Amino acid sequence: MDPHMIGGGQGFNRIFGLTGGHADPKSPESRRLGCPVRSCPDRVRQADPLTYVGAGTPPMLILYGRQDLLVPYRQSELLAQGLGRAGASGVLYTLPWGLHGDWNEFLISPALQRDATRQVIGGGAVRPAESASPNRQTITDFFRGMTAARP
């Protein structure tokens, strides 16, 4: 993830008191896995959501802020692409001004919604981005759609 971090990961390192980014033995990922991420590829694979993506994966709603200092935006793109390749479905909302974990603000702040886009995932692909304005109804509609799609 480090090559895709905003500002070369300096913000991430500052927040967590690190020098080695996500690969640092004291990073949240390394601590969660119980080993430095570069030394335990099997555990990393088990923790990677893409390991479990398949045609039967439930639809995913991804809301992602491009200004996230903790997890690079590229991770949302990889997840969307993996879902598309596997024949799964979902939607990726990208908020260019959003930070990490701002999902509630994503849904109510016009400033964060400015220039937002939506990409529908399905049919083996991720469709091109289109303008969007995600709000709380977006979440309700997503879950209602999932329920309606069930047999």
Rank of each mutant, 00 (worst) to 15 (best):
M1E: 10
I6R: 14
G7Q: 02
G7P: 00
G7N: 11
G7A: 04
G7I: 02
G8S: 09
G9R: 00
L18S: 07
G20S: 07
G21V: 02
G21S: 04
H22V: 12
H22C: 05
S27M: 08
S30D: 05
R31M: 14
R31Q: 15
L33H: 01
L33D: 04
G34C: 07
C35K: 04
C35N: 10
P36A: 13
P36F: 06
P36R: 02
R38L: 15
R38I: 12
S39K: 12
C40L: 08
D42L: 05
R43F: 00
V44M: 11
A47Q: 05
D48F: 03
L50H: 01
Y52P: 04
Y52M: 05
V53N: 00
G54I: 01
G54Y: 03
G54F: 01
A55M: 08
A55E: 14
T57P: 06
P59H: 04
M60T: 13
L63W: 01
G65E: 02
Q67N: 11
L69A: 12
V71N: 10
V71L: 14
V71T: 14
P72K: 08
P72Y: 11
Y73V: 03
Q75S: 13
A80F: 07
G82A: 06
G82N: 07
L83T: 02
L83Q: 03
R85N: 12
A86F: 04
S89N: 06
G90W: 07
V91N: 02
L92N: 02
T94D: 00
L95S: 00
P96T: 06
G98T: 09
H100L: 11
D102M: 14
W103N: 11
N104P: 10
N104G: 14
I108T: 15
I108G: 03
L112F: 09
Q113A: 12
R114E: 13
R114M: 13
D115N: 15
A116L: 07
A116M: 06
T117N: 02
V120C: 01
I121S: 03
I121E: 03
I121R: 01
G122M: 10
P128T: 08
A129I: 09
A132S: 11
S133W: 12
P134C: 05
N135S: 12
N135I: 02
N135K: 05
Q137I: 10
D141K: 11
F142G: 08
F143L: 13
F143K: 09
G145V: 10
G145E: 12
T147F: 13
T147V: 15
A149H: 05
A149L: 12
R150V: 11
R150S: 15
R150K: 12
P151Y: 04
